[in-house]
Amino acid sequence: MMNKLILEVSGLTMDFGGIRALDRLDLDVRSKEIVALIGPNGAGKTTFFNCLTGIYLPSNGDIRLVSPQTGKESRLNGLKPNKITEKGVARTFQNIRLFSQMTVLENVMIGRHCRTSSLILGAIFRGRKTRKEEQETIDKSYEILEKVGLAEQANEFASNLSYGAQRRLEIGRALATEPFLLLLDEPAAGMNPQETADLVSLILQIRDEDHAILLIEHDMKLVMTLSDRIFVMDYGEKIAQGTPAEIRVNRAVIKAYLGEDVESDNA
């Protein structure tokens, strides 16, 4: 199974003052693939996402994106976050960042912003084009809400949702931007087993709809069942990569997660 390459990161480095948060990281994602990024807390996973989505400007290295639909290639370094989203990369946040004073549906409608275009005059005169666009936004947003199982709560405030539902709404909002690469930052954090199971099937469904997924997650069971490939980071460096089966037995990984003791015990 060798799908088309859609994301290629090479030599990505990020320095904060004297601290090197990311050290010459290489990573690639192919279309219709679920790739997991794991590692102990503080390994630099979220920093990596922030570099990818333009929130941080990487100190060095290259991020290349290839659209699977058009085959067009672009370099993401130095682009503004909204441009990167327009190119087809969407994300969720580790500490949920919904628009809590807006309704669930409106949150998803915001995601449609970069796929629509009406501005001041459109808003004031509400011509046929604008009305059609609005209607499409509403319809597509509802469809997404049905997909993530929140259609019932469409008109409630986002802040009134349960924790698991908020995480799903974040995914829905990201999907509304029509990405081909979806970045999920700890989507299962704080979920109960039932919610996690629902999440797994949701992620698989999204993958089957032609989205590639790169996710950060601490729930190893979820990572091992979902991922096609896993990258392991520690102290800003990549220490291992491979299939779940390979990672499970990788010495460096075990060492990073469990410390030196295990190493000496085994020896």
Partner: peptide
Amino acid sequence: RAWLALREDEIACQAMGID
């Protein structure tokens, strides 16, 4: 809607493709 969203969270807005 974009204005309201910006009032709440600029970073999330940018991640949603709002300039």
